[in-house]
Design a protein around this nucleic acid. Structure first.
Lengths: 207, 207
DNA sequence: AACTGTGAAATTATTCACAGCT
DNA sequence: AGCTGTGAATAATTTCACAGTT
């Protein structure tokens, strides 16, 4: 089990297991059944997911909460801080800059870029917006490997190319187009409209 | 094929097929192979997805672009405007309010609510922010069935209950907790941190 | 007795491959 | 000849069920 290839779908579930562990203080141990109750996933799925990474459950007791928390953080790689670069400081970009959820999980937006002169130089949440043309030189100094792209559709492709050239290897893309990654670079596309369209389908299909 | 049960995973793909059709003008017809090229999905998957809903391809030619566009819109239910209520006009909420992508696809944020006196009464993009306590009465008049929730974690559950009570049946939740829906109500959770955690895992696992 | 870890079974999703239409 | 529509084959994911551990 332990040296099987890990399906990518387990990773977001691990994140969610972690969330409930974070707020769980009623006991030192938690069973897969309890995690199931709190997350809505099945107990056997939880056991299987965790077993991909080792055996840290104790039969008849469950999982030791603190240890499991540490283990999941380590698996996800979020046991240390990740510096992130933000490109595009429009409405969505500023929202992401002030979003507390990222910081709590160890993500730190270290620098931000835009091409709009009215935004460049502004200080938002302690981050000074820089001119997009400085992206290459700044990133070389900072050694940042993770980026959030929140620019308009037409700019997205070029921005991604600059980021990859500057050493970024993981990108969260909010621009409404499906960017495809080259080898060694991971791009996750978050398409807010698609989510609304799923809801529209749900309401339409259920009449 | 046509009366099989439709897997939920095909719906977001239909949205993305539509996106590329929208920008496709080189011919009246488009083949599954061409859509594959443009979206990154496989041609056979595209054919199978479309076949769930009928037979509108023409052998040796492909799919008639205009017809396919209309058909997908109809399937998704986005051939007409959907009114949406926004709850929570913080940073993320305001960003969503000004986000152009929604409008282009037929979603219209019709009203917005918050509990912060400094925000209530403000006019954002033509929408006046209302007091959250008026949610019930306003929604009864407007007959809105879709909502976006962008409030802090502790408020989310209560907000969802009020929304459902007021007739809302589909909810896009940005609050960082996994809300579970009661029967007849669809809740999609968008957890931005989970996406960053996936990226962290990618960078960690690939060493 | 209680709960994990895990092969085996069941289910779900994707790809293959080709008959049949234009 | 070219491309769809779809059963069959394959692959991926989830659930079952139970042996083994504390």
């Amino acid at each position: 089990m332990e040296n099987e290839k890990i399906p990518l779908v387990v990773i977001p579930r691990l994140s969610l297991y972690y969330r409930v562990l974070f707020g769980f203080y009623s006991s030192d141990f938690i069973s897969s059944e309890e995690i199931a109750q709190l997350t809505g996933f099945s107990a056997s799925q939880i056991r299987k997911d965790l077993a991909y990474f080792g055996q840290f459950g104790i039969p008849s007791k469950g999982y030791q909460v603190d240890e499991l928390k540490r283990t999941i953080l380590k698996i996800l790689g979020t046991d240390k801080q990740w510096d992130v670069v933000l490109v595009g400081v429009g409405n969505l970009g500023s929202a992401l800059l002030t979003y507390r959820g990222f910081g709590r999980l160890g993500f730190k937006i270290k620098c931000a870029f835009d091409n709009d002169l009215r935004k460049i130089g502004k200080n938002l949440e302690g981050v000074v917006v820089q001119d997009i043309t400085e992206l290459g030189t700044t990133l070389k100094k900072e050694n940042i490997r993770m980026a959030i792209v929140a620019v308009p559709q037409d700019a997205a492709c070029e921005v991604v190319n600059s980021l990859v050239k500057a050493g970024v290897r993981a990108i969260l893309n909010f621009a409404p187009l499906r960017l495809q990654a080259q080898a060694g670079v991971e791009i996750l596309n978050v398409d807010l409209s698609v989510e609304l369209e799923k809801l529209a389908y749900f309401l339409t299909a259920s009449k």
